[in-house]
């Protein structure tokens, strides 16, 4: 197996006496979707915040293409090719698609003026590549649907050089049809072959539809991992519930 684009070894994070992550290993390969599953409070958010450079790990190491990498700021992470699409998408609702697309990385001419036409065109073309034809890049993001916003955030991360795309519950809080749209977008990104995706979700069906590799977190530790081939439906369910057996739960419920 080729060296993964990103490898995480023994990652630990403590907030004072509280251990949020207790030694997590993870591999992300280009062209693969790696589903990261776990219950609320399992440490998913802490993990992605470390990968995105928001938090620094207490122990453990991140390797990018085999070389150790330390992210002190979100900028470091993004320079190393980690693109994070947060649940709130980091979008400014009142501002246009283009202005959001280039937020913080605006194209300027020699006089410091924004190259609005060029930016409009790039935003439009990049979004078209992964799914939606956006007729009007001057439209405010607030008027877009949740799925379109997700696409915008993903297109932005890819355009600015993401080699690992972290998607934090991209399908939650969306309608059924929009969820399918986002999955299609993820599939398109996967098909490019040069980008690895970390797909965080609560939804077992979505992860089965699209993921190549699975990692299950519970209480800050990896409680199981595998690939599409090695894991079956029931096993995924069991691990998602934090390792509890469905049968046990049924028994418990019956005894109440």
């Amino acid at each position: 197996m080729a060296e993964p684009y990103m490898r995480v070894k023994g990652l630990e994070k403590k907030f004072g006496p509280f251990t949020a992550l207790g030694g997590v290993d993870l591999e992300v390969h280009a062209g693969e979707v790696h589903a990261l599953l776990g219950d609320n409070g399992a440490g998913k958010s802490t993990l992605i915040k470390i990968l995105a450079g928001v938090h620094q790990p207490t122990a453990g190491q991140i390797y990018i293409e085999g070389k150790p990498a330390n992210f002190r700021t979100p900028r470091d992470a993004s320079a190393a090719g980690i693109g994070t699409v947060y649940q709130d998408l980091a979008l400014n609702q009142l501002m246009s698609v283009t202005r959001n697309f280039f937020m913080g990385r605006e194209l300027k001419n020699a006089f410091g003026m924004l190259k609005m036409n060029e930016m409009d065109k790039i935003a439009h073309d990049e979004m078209l590549k992964i799914g939606i034809d956006f007729s009007d890049p001057t439209q405010a993001v607030g008027t877009m649907s949740g799925g379109q916003r997700q696409t915008l955030a993903i297109a932005r991360a890819i355009y600015f050089g993401a080699k690992v795309l972290i998607l934090d519950e991209p399908t939650s809080a969306l309608g059924q049809k929009q969820q399918m749209g986002v999955l299609k977008t993820i599939q398109k990104v996967r098909k490019r072959g040069d980008i690895g995706i970390i797909f965080i979700t609560h939804n077992e069906i979505h992860s089965r539809l699209i993921a190549d590799r699975f990692t299950f977190l519970a209480l800050g530790k990896v409680i199981g991992e595998g690939t599409q081939e090695t894991l079956d439906h029931n096993e995924i369910r069991r691990l998602m519930a934090g390792g509890a057996e469905m049968a046990d739960l049924e028994q418990e419920l019956a005894s109440v």
Partner: peptide
């Protein structure tokens, strides 16, 4: 017409989003 203007709008609209994008 400028980057600074973009940043000013973004700061007032959604501060955290602006910060996450390096503003």
């Amino acid at each position: 017409r400028t980057q600074l203007g973009n940043w000013i709008y973004a700061t007032g609209d959604n501060k955290e989003a602006a910060r996450a994008n390096g503003v």
